[in-house]
Design a protein around this nucleic acid. Structure first.
Lengths: 402, 402
DNA sequence: CGTCATTAGTAACGAACCGTTTGATAGTTT
DNA sequence: AAACTATCAAACGGTTCGTTACTAATGACG
């Protein structure tokens, strides 16, 4: 048995056509359609569509809505995709909060929750919280645990998506190599996927946003990292280590050997990360603003000051934009993604900051690009987790068509 | 008509199965197989395979080889993929030579030729040479012009692969925006594809080499550029401008604005390109070696000197490796390709040079990687062009299965 | 109020494909 | 020469689709 590339009979044809009808139904507005709509969309004959719908109804994936308002002739029966036939969960394990969303097969959220996490949690702590909250959330939404078709979890750190294991997570003790997924899979009896949070954020931006097939997401906060979607699929790299813009070294002169990092941050993060910008601002701004920035890592006061005409703020914004542009330019030169979405704490800088970045970027790159602020913000990672779980749920859906 | 996603009848099933049988045959060693081999490989029944082979024979894509030596029982008939049913051409338009290869559908070269090009050619010159040489080569190989299913052309510069147009080619006057492809297509009556030479070189490395699905090719010569294959498909970027490692600026201090280039080279090319290395060597090596390097841009004497124990050579090699590592590290951090293949003039440095690069690279990156010298060297681009033409020929092959 | 036009759904038929079964064929081995 | 083995070819039943003809349901109009 080498490839098994070929089909083996008419029943395969039926499966293809049933899948096609289902696809057409799910692509329809409101997830409902008349039989005639489906014949037009699939190119199949009416009897073939009817047969396919009968199969889908047997599998519990479509239901009839009865007759609909009509103009002339016999009223058509509307059929509906039963999105409630299955559910998925997306989970974002962030540094301070855990976000959970349960969505149906159409991706519509059925229940969501944000749980604050006590400082300095350990890996086992997080697993415990996750299990408690997920069970409670699912129960409240009337979704039995067996009704979950797939669960996707996003976490900071380096994640081996293939093996579903956290490879490196400096900020959470006891998180690396934890047999978390095995336990969750056993408990939930469904696939549990794990991925880097930035990878999930890109996915969310790409699916939810303007649907450019290739897109670069840049997390610009204290840490700096990028996620890349190429032709609709996340690019993680051979060792799940792509997107480490934060570790690019633009500071050390070319013929000097870079020093190893002492604080766990990457070279570019030390130059252009939120903490670096904050320190710049504290040094150069007047007393009241400096005091505000000294007490709180949030940079919004800085951007507010710039918007209000404080003369000390613009040079800081300018420097931040210039440095960030130097790093981003490298990525654009190497990958040319066409569309860049910026998220993270610095996204609060808005177009004020982004316009400065664009201005500095323009002479450094060779190809045109678009750049915008993330529209999802703190929901990006959960949303991406839901999308990834949905992608996986397709496989289970396919088995129901036989 | 939105998607037409579904199949529409048993004939589609037949097409799938015929394609599967053909695939199994083409995957067989020597491109030949017995009927029983094909039933095992495809999972189809013997009559189904026989029917499929009859269709393929009608289309001219398979032929019988008669009975074969046997052990016991009735001797089996061997069938053969008729690779000579169609041909493709790959063409590499380099700065000094034009290389042409005509290959059959199996990718086996039927005729090849390298033509020196007089210095400073114009675009129309190149088109004239291409047409003459291609017609002559095809004629000599017994392949009528109408027997070409696809032609792929690789050229330096920025190429819009989608529209098949040279966007930017600083070194060849009258090459940009030339309606070359329209003319060639009309003459040849087959698809003519155009792509950047580095993109084709990667493709060749990926298909010919150890078949890692994701691979980064770095051309390290006077110019520096990279090509990327992700999951078997070339990544060109949204604006066909990916892979411009040569323009990455690692020299300008972070808070200074980079100067626009005066010589057409990129910032990293001015640091680590062949010309920069040569100048370094001329300055620091002793008289005889310096003289050799002054008169000839070829760097092989430098590497020879290093291998022979000349004390002046290692520091130059070391500096070159260190600088190159700094640039390559950026690419590895952002994309994590896993496998890096180095081509171009500096590839003559061999493992002597590459070991130094590996040593400098190791503390700069986060994920493991393999790095090796290109095995194809000056044939990389033509070979890649043949592969790309073959990829396109698949479409025509598919139409023959109906 | 009845008829007609219009649209939706259903049943029957023929065509195409696949897999299984059965029988014929061409060699080798005993 | 007979037995054996693996391959090839033909016939049959099952599944799927598309086409065609027919029935069903509703609004418009006389």
């Amino acid at each position: 048995m080498t490839a098994e590339a070929a089909a083996t009979g008419p029943h395969v044809l039926r499966r293809i056509n049933v899948a096609g009808v289902l696809q057409a139904l799910r692509d329809s507005p409101d997830l409902t359609a008349r039989v005639s709509d489906l014949t037009a969309a699939t190119g199949l004959s009416r009897p073939a569509v009817t047969r396919a719908l009968a199969h889908l109804a047997d599998a519990g994936l479509v239901a009839s809505l009865g007759v609909e308002p009509h103009q002339a002739g016999r009223p058509a029966v509307r059929v509906r995709f039963r999105a409630e036939a299955g559910h998925v969960a997306g989970i974002d394990i962030g540094p301070h909060t855990m976000a959970l969303v349960i969505a149906d097969l159409a991706g519509a959220p059925q229940a969501e929750r944000r749980v604050p996490i006590a400082p300095a949690p350990t890996g086992p702590d997080l697993v415990r919280i996750l299990r408690t909250e997920l069970a409670d959330l699912a129960g409240g939404a009337g979704v039995p645990a067996s009704g979950l078709w797939a669960v996707a979890v996003g976490t900071p750190g380096v994640v081996d998506h293939g093996r579903g294991e956290v490879v490196l997570a400096p900020s959470i003790p006891g998180w690396t190599g934890l047999p978390m997924l095995a336990g969750l899979r056993e408990w939930l009896d469904c696939p549990v996927l794990l991925d880097n949070d930035v990878n999930l954020a890109v996915l969310a931006e790409q699916r939810t946003g303007d649907a450019a097939p290739t897109l670069l997401y840049v997390h610009w906060g204290e840490r700096i990292g990028t996620g890349l979607v190429i032709d609709g699929r996340p690019h993680r790299g051979a060792g799940s280590a792509a997107g480490e813009l934060g570790f690019v070294d633009l500071a050390t002169p070319i013929d000097r050997t870079p020093e190893p990092a002492a604080d766990g941050l990457g070279a570019f993060e030390r130059l252009a990360g939120a903490e670096a910008i904050r320190r710049l601002a504290v040094e150069s701004c007047d007393a009241s603003l400096a005091a505000a920035l000294r007490s709180d890592p949030d940079l919004r006061p800085l951007f507010q000051a710039a918007a209000d005409g404080d003369p000390a703020a613009p040079p800081v914004v300018e420097t931040a934009a210039a440095r960030f542009a130097r790093g981003l330019a490298v990525h654009l030169l190497l990958v040319d993604p066409g569309v860049v979405v910026v998220g993270g704490g610095l996204a609060h800088g808005g177009d004020l900051l982004l316009d400065a970045v664009r201005r500095h970027l323009e002479p450094l790159v060779l190809a045109p690009f678009e750049m915008r602020i993330s529209g999802l913000q703190e929901n990006a990672v959960v949303t991406g987790a839901v999308w990834m779980a949905l992608d996986h749920a397709e496989k289970r859906l396919a088995t129901l068509l036989g």
